[in-house]
């Protein structure tokens, strides 16, 4: 097993799937000649050519709409949105088209489509380029929404997404691209819609995903020094949401903290906490805590931005409150 970055893992999954299946192609802004604004598709244009690595105009509705149409003809497009913040310009095509066509036409339309989009704050990009709007997309039945937090999951889940017959929004995090991890070589698949226990512990359950897995792991390391063993459940997929490992862990620890980067209101934490209350109320020993972004548009200033984003200390504090 090689120790590679998240960027390399995603790139590897795309490359291998394009080698494996001629129906797979990439379209998006600067994916070709430029090599991807986050360098994920560097070298693809030269190897696969302009037909399979298609630079598009800056027109997100056209990108997603065209990807939907191509998918309907039996191709397997991977559409890249430069950031998830630009998905709002393609909202109708994601929500009203991609998520609906299969159902609305009685199953006759099939869209094997992947939308890759990078999100998250922490890079001083200002309010319009730093959002974590994952929960919004996870609201809609018909769309699959996944957000891996490790390089291995990124590779395995992107391959699963490309092979899926359903439209999948694959959310990456801008500050995770350099994160390294062990990644199996070759055909490594991680099924969509499966959460997993990333770290075992017996005192408290931390439920999280994507970038916040890293924050939660650092918090758990520090807590361990104080003798507090936190179990971490990585959701990985927001829709379908797999509550199995969450409930299994909670029934053991009876306490939970949910850590997400997006805003707390109507968010992932709200959903997960409600489901725990609904399905495991008898096991609740303390009110469930949520750690999330301050309810402000993210400011540019570095200090202010970090104040708004969930930090390791916030997770530690929340864990101690539920113990």
């Amino acid at each position: 097993m090689a120790r590679i970055t998240m960027r390399e893992a995603i790139s590897q999954a795309l490359w291998e799937e394009m080698e494996r299946d001629p129906r797979v192609f990439i379209l998006g802004e600067e994916v070709g000649v430029w090599g991807g604004t986050y360098a994920v598709t560097k070298g693809f244009y030269d190897h696969f050519g302009p037909e399979r690595v298609r630079d598009t105009p800056i027109a997100e509705a056209a990108i997603i709409g065209a990807a939907i149409g191509a998918a309907l003809t039996g191709l397997r497009p991977v559409a890249e949105l430069m950031t998830i913040n630009f998905a709002f310009s393609a909202m109708d095509h994601i929500v009203n088209q991609a998520a609906k066509l299969h159902y609305m036409f009685g199953g006759q339309m099939i869209l094997p489509l992947v939308i890759r989009a990078v999100g998250g704050g922490g890079r001083q990009l200002g309010a319009t380029h730093s959002q974590t709007p994952d929960a919004i997309f996870a609201h809609f039945p018909g769309l699959k929404v996944v957000a891996p937090g490790t390089p291995a999951d990124a590779k395995g889940m992107l391959k699963a997404a490309i092979r899926s017959q359903d439209p999948v929004l694959f959310i990456e995090h801008a500050t995770l691209y350099q994160t390294r991890g062990e990644v199996p070589e070759g055909d490594y698949i991680v099924p969509l819609g499966k959460s997993t226990i990333q770290r075992e512990g017996r005192h408290v359950t931390i439920v999280t995903y994507s970038k916040m897995l890293e924050i939660s792991t650092k918090a758990a390391d520090q807590l361990a020094k104080e003798g507090i063993e936190a179990e971490i459940v990585d959701l990985r997929s927001l829709r379908p949401l797999d509550m199995g490992p969450v409930l299994e862990s909670f029934k053991k620890t009876n306490r939970a903290v949910i850590v997400e980067e997006g805003w707390k209101s109507y968010g992932v934490g709200a959903e997960v906490a409600s489901r725990i209350y609904e399905e495991a109320f008898d096991y609740v020993d303390a009110p469930i805590k949520r750690v999330a972004q301050a309810e402000v548009p993210l400011p540019y200033n570095r200090t202010l931005e970090q104040m708004a984003l969930p930090q390791v200390e916030d997770v530690i504090k929340a864990v101690k409150e539920v113990l």
Partner: peptide
């Protein structure tokens, strides 16, 4: 390929259908 009820939204999809034909 339908019957689409959001005004104009099927136009990019049409471009994609044609792209699929060109590709294949």
């Amino acid at each position: 390929w339908g019957g689409h009820a959001i005004v104009g939204a099927h136009l990019p999809i049409a471009a994609g259908l044609a792209l699929g034909d060109v590709y294949q």
